[in-house]
Amino acid sequence: MTTVISAILILFGLAVVFGIILGYASVRFRVEGNPIVDQIDGLLPQTQCGQCGYPGCRPYAEAIANGDAINKCPPGGQSTIEALADLLDVEAIPLDDEHGQEQAKMVAYIREDECIGCTKCIQACPVDAILGAAKQMHTVITDECTGCDLCVEPCPVDCIDMIPVETTIANWKWPSPTESPSLIATDRGRGQVQQQEAV
């Protein structure tokens, strides 16, 4: 009987001690906000385009943290989905077409002689990448443009084009070597047929 009581007492004492330690730790090492949101936000492309249906990347990150689908970001594309899947330990799913298609990096371009200087695009730009003033010609700071195309809609004279980012020596990428579809030599023939079909 005494053993049972002592065991209970010991366990109770341990529970109290650990409870105190845990309680202290939860106060002492308190984390403000949800750290996962920051991590998700760090993976999103920060175009602030709103194609996901949220007003910017952070709101979408918060939504993902609360269980929203990870495939609503066309600017990020499949690579972002994969990174998010990796982070959240969920399955990578294909991009949701409803929110748009993944496309080449774009940059806004203002046809300057058509610009009337209304400043509407400046107000629309989420990253302040458009320079100009009322009744003055506007122009896009290409390096700052995220290609979100939010400035295209408000333009009253439709003088903003989204043009693909030009490939220069600075941003050129080595192409992937033509991959052999076969894993073993005897597969080669079949692989080539498949490749041709694919073409």
Partner: peptide
């Protein structure tokens, strides 16, 4: 190929961080 992919990704990450800062 892998190196330039990683560099591009890093550049994009930097750009994204920059865009976030600006935003």
């Amino acid at each position: 190929f892998a190196k330039s992919e990683i560099r591009t990704e890093e550049a994009e990450q930097r750009k994204a961080d920059h865009a976030r800062q600006r935003f």
